[in-house]
Design a protein around this nucleic acid. Structure first.
Lengths: 211, 211, 211, 211
DNA sequence: TATGAATGAGAATTCATTCAT
DNA sequence: GATGAATGAATTCTCATTCAT
């Protein structure tokens, strides 16, 4: 699994170490369950340093949330756009989806701790929920709307489905794959990711392709 | 939305009030973010009373987790079995799924605070994860395996899909519907649940029905 | 020196102990120099108890400031009014002033730690300054205005002085006596309070009596 | 109001900037309430620079206290001596006092922040108290003793008052004037300083002049 | 049984001080 | 000399837990 390159976030050395440590600790214990002492020790900095950079524990969480949303929306949405736009005419829907999902799954795989934090925060806090909606959900749907339009024009996707519905279905399916892989890894000892993705795409495509 | 009948949990009056208050507070703030003071005030009991009944805050959480898992597995899994077993021969796959999903969504809707807690805890804590796996996921898949067998026999479901895959797809889709309804309610102002469920079932069934 | 009776403040046992300890510690080290740990230890309570009663350290200070202003305005102003109003016709100005000042000095003597805190806070904080002005200074001047009126009618006080001026002069003189006694006690080994007060009254009265 | 000329303190540029900033911040928040960060920012130097010059925060305070005491004793006591000694024979007591007090009030006015710090420290700390006593109070009383002697010789001051008593009375009165002007400025909108001083001198002189 | 005042261990936060640059 | 990032000891504050009533 490729590591996410945190240096692109434009943080100073210590800041980056705190950031990484925070992701690790917060993802394991949640915001309130984590202590700044533990984060500091993990980051190899003094506890006071955290507060120099992030003012308060909540401030640390806020900064992290923003950066994480940026990471996901940038990596997931924008790079998807590029991939789709760069689509050489001959690739079919399944091939395209496969590449897309496979990358996305790999990405979330590598960012799973961050994803956990974001999910928990989305569930618990209104403000994070709003930010996630605006920068990830809305953007994702908008992207799918465009994608869908192109695909409808090529007559490879049914016309009677809203982009929200398709997005939700695809998102729900890959979320489940990731959840299973990450939360219940012992249940997937005998299947491999590629086959799983192909099967899911088969199901989805049968569902969304015209008859 | 019908209220869940907590009296069937076999708790004393105060215990039940603490239980309900805990669900409300924990679902809003998470386990570590909630204080026993707030729960006590909400339940209308003294803080000490919580400890009389549940020994520790963690003990309260553990009891709650167990009861909540029981609630979900009982209501979701067992009652599904009954519904499916009681299936009069003439109902087709889509009709059956629709009834099943519709009920399940309504149930989770009414138990959403509990579902939130369980989800967050599943994400954060190994032990809850295990319990959820054993009593909900595994049971759910087992149920689907049986269901699938019957359906394959009737030739209304493809033979080449594992029950895990189908379960995951159905579960992922309804999870997304519930998440959207509950977390981003402002996005569903113009769609109604029944239509949404029908659309999703259409997609899933096309995906899982034989060609 | 008679002790101030703190029980009249209507505080619970622990609250009163915290209050007394706070006066002692704050008067010795100032607000920021005092620690809640030290106050708690001095009061014989747990540190947490302070926060149960006063929410924050600042809250403790605020409550104390209010109570102390109440103590001073009540004891100094109101009881002065009574004394003056109860003045049997035959007492002359000097006799009256002597009794008044003597009591006031004794009072401030016994409340000196509180007076120190109030003085420092008055110097450092706008809000305390305002409260002290409204409840002590203004009240004091109003009282003197009445007193002066009576005395002018009896022709024992010059007519050409504002009550502010007289108040300031008297207050300034007794403040200096108290300051000397309390801050530089080694300088008064050979004088006694009664003589000092009589001398000061002599000076003041010559100054404010008509020629 | 004339500014005090800090350059005469013989400090280097940065040192002087730290000194001025310290007076401002300490006078607003007290010693413990002020932070070296704020002082540094205010002085336009790095936090470390403060410690280069003054070793510790307490060292800064000590140096400041000494310089401030020097400022006051020099400016208030020594220059008073000169004024009195330079007294051309024809000036009467009231004229002399008026000039003296007027200057002193103006001086304290311009040095009020320093005076606040010194007052608070005198109240709170034994060592400052001692230094203030030795260099300001004792000196002031000694000065008054001489002054009184001359005046008694001229038969313009009563013989039966100790210099301490007179000093205290004069000091108390001007302290109150300054306190009122600085702490409760809204109460003096309609009086002017010169008249106030003259009135106070009238009261004091009646009090201390022989009958 | 139920209470809630009191506790104190533990967490967040502050800030004087150091030191490599 | 001067800087300011980094430190960590000290301080404020929180909250699960206890226990006398």
């Amino acid at each position: 699994m490729e590591e996410f390159d945190y240096s692109q976030l434009g943080l100073s050395d210590k800041e980056e170490r705190i950031f990484k440590a925070s992701i690790e600790i917060f993802s394991k214990k949640g915001f309130d369950g984590a202590t700044t002492y533990e984060i500091a020790r993990h980051a190899g900095v003094a506890e006071g340093t955290i507060f120099k950079y992030f003012k308060t524990k909540k401030g640390l969480m806020k900064t992290m949330t923003i950066k994480m949303i940026g990471m996901f929306s940038g990596k997931m949405i924008l790079s998807s756009v590029e991939k789709i736009l760069a689509n050489p005419e001959d690739k079919n829907l399944r091939q395209l989806l496969k590449e897309l999902l496979f990358d996305r799954i790999k990405l979330v795989d590598s960012l799973f701790p961050a994803a956990k934090i974001l999910l928990v925060e989305t569930i618990l806090h209104e403000d994070v929920r709003e930010a996630v909606y605006t920068h990830i959900v809305k953007e994702g749907i908008a992207l799918f709307a465009k994608f869908q339009k192109t695909m409808i024009a090529k007559k490879v996707i049914r016309e009677d489905l809203s982009p929200e519905t398709i997005f939700r279905s695809i998102f729900g399916n890959i979320a489940m794959i990731i959840a299973q892989r990450k939360l219940f890894p012992e249940t997937i000892r005998f299947t491999n990711l590629e086959t799983e993705v192909e099967t899911i795409i088969d199901i989805i495509c049968r569902g969304i392709e015209p008859e």
